[in-house]
């Protein structure tokens, strides 16, 4: 009972997260301006981290957790650096 229920929920959640990543990729490609693309990239990062967490539940191992933690950390640094770049034209002043 709980296996079937969880299997379906995990599958559905993964499909929804993939669709969410698809939306973000479309916005990433459409733009129209650089800040739209950076925002889409940030959303893509968060969705990827959530997808990894769901993968972890699917496989029952907590190894995916560390990958999700790394993605959120790297996503923060990337977005902060890109925003800085948009504002000043250089990352390190």
């Amino acid at each position: 009972m709980s296996v079937v229920l969880l299997a379906w929920a995990v599958l559905l959640a993964q499909l929804m997260l993939l669709a969410a990543m698809g939306c973000a990729v479309v916005r990433l490609l459409l733009g129209p301006r650089a800040q739209d693309r950076v925002l889409a990239l940030d959303t893509l990062n968060v969705n990827a981290a959530m997808l990894l967490l769901v993968f972890g539940i699917r496989t029952g191992t907590s190894h995916y957790f560390e990958a999700a933690l790394l993605i959120t950390l790297l996503g923060f640094v990337t977005t902060a650096a890109l925003s800085k770049f948009l504002m000043r034209g250089e990352v390190i002043e």
Partner: peptide, 25 residues
């Protein structure tokens, strides 16, 4: 079973919110 139901609902809710948010983009 009760735990499986809670986990399933939370997963669907979380993924659904992420989808709505990305759709908003």
């Amino acid at each position: 079973v009760w735990a499986a139901v809670i986990v399933a609902v939370l997963l669907l809710l979380g993924a659904g919110l992420a989808l709505i948010g990305s759709f908003g983009l």
